[in-house]
């Protein structure tokens, strides 16, 4: 057989932290193959036929769940849906109780979304299937970061191996509570990009620069226009329910101070007409981003959603083959 086989260095996808650059490249390259599958009329391959993918969503997220479910179905896997609402979780069942019950059904892959940081890590200790983190608390949302990187690479016509060297990406919003920001800071840096983060001072944890090696700004215009400017801007969703915790003023204040409104976008576009605008969705139109900007040709928001399926197919596929390799290894 050919040279040493290159697979993921980790048995689970718990976060971007812990992935090597080779891992990220492998996932992104594999996702590229699935983009081709998704462009076919018959968007389905038999790779995971007969495998069971459990989707454990302890926290509501229709979009991410649908994306993972579609990914699993396009790989011909069976899916098992578990969501917290209307389930025994509301009757006080713990994560572990639920996990053990699901475990009895023998899932090969477990996709988990939970409001507590570290929940997927916990599951990885008690379940035999491979775990894919679909967002845990304020910790990580690795598939979102992977699909964001994938979208940027496609937009800039680069391969994953070429990476994001020489590009500057600015993340704007509630950095301290955002798992999307955490995963993105890690992955963008891993792929060689320079990362700026911006938000009201109340949304920027003190240790940011030290931990992630990013440039921190509490003035969004400084972040976007200082130095050589930026190549892409990622607007985070403002959680309105969190506004009550005195971390921000009104929606209007935020929109003027930090949102990507028309005037700010025009200035950005004038400085760099190749600027890429991203948002993980769902969008609060008129708050963190202007409706027309979200729909402009600079926006890749719909590409992000579309690429999400391919990236999640890649993650499920690689975790499944990784597990198969481990089984073979331990049996030998």
């Amino acid at each position: 057989m050919t040279a040493k086989q290159k697979l993921l260095s980790v048995p689970h996808l718990l976060g971007i932290e812990g992935l090597t650059r080779d891992d990220a490249i492998l996932i992104l390259d594999t996702a590229q193959s699935f983009v081709e599958v998704n462009s076919r009329q018959l968007k389905k391959v038999p790779a995971l036929r007969g495998r069971l993918v459990a989707l454990l969503f302890f926290e509501n997220s229709t979009r991410t769940r649908l994306s993972f479910e579609l990914a699993a179905k396009r790989l011909s896997a069976d899916t098992l849906n578990f969501s917290a609402s209307g389930s025994s979780v509301q009757k006080g069942e713990t994560l572990l109780d639920t996990a053990r019950n699901i475990e009895a059904m023998g899932p090969d892959l477990v996709v988990v979304r939970h409001e507590a940081s570290g929940a997927p890590w916990h599951l990885s200790r008690v379940m035999s299937g491979a775990i894919a983190n679909a967002g845990d608390g304020q910790h990580e949302h690795p598939t979102q970061a992977l699909l964001d990187a994938f979208t940027l690479l496609s937009r800039w016509r680069r391969t994953a191996a070429q990476g994001l060297d020489g590009k500057t990406v600015c993340i704007v919003g509630d950095i301290s509570r955002s798992r999307v920001a955490r995963s993105n800071m890690l992955l963008l840096k891993l792929l060689g990009a320079r990362v700026r983060v911006a938000g009201p001072a109340t949304m920027l944890p003190a240790a940011l620069a030290d931990v992630y090696g990013v440039d921190v700004y509490d003035d969004v215009d400084d972040a976007l226009f200082s130095g050589d400017g930026v190549d892409a801007v990622m607007m985070l969703r403002i959680q309105k329910e969190r506004a009550a915790r005195a971390v921000m003023g009104s929606d209007d204040d935020y929109a003027v101070g930090y949102g990507l409104h028309r005037e700010r976008f025009d200035r950005l576009h004038a400085a760099n007409d190749g600027i890429v605008v991203m948002h993980p969705g769902p969008i609060n139109r008129g708050v963190e981003i202007d409706a027309a900007v979200a729909d402009s040709s600079s926006s890749v928001i719909l590409d992000q959603t579309e690429n999400g399926v391919a990236v999640r197919m890649a993650v499920l596929y690689l975790l499944a083959v990784g597990m198969a390799r481990t089984d073979v290894g331990s049996a030998a």
Binding site: S117, G137, Q138, S176, P205, A207, L208, V211
Partner: peptide, 12 residues
Amino acid sequence: VEGAVATRLGLA
């Protein structure tokens, strides 16, 4: 405690 560790792990 607020700081590098809590920031990395996403803990309140």
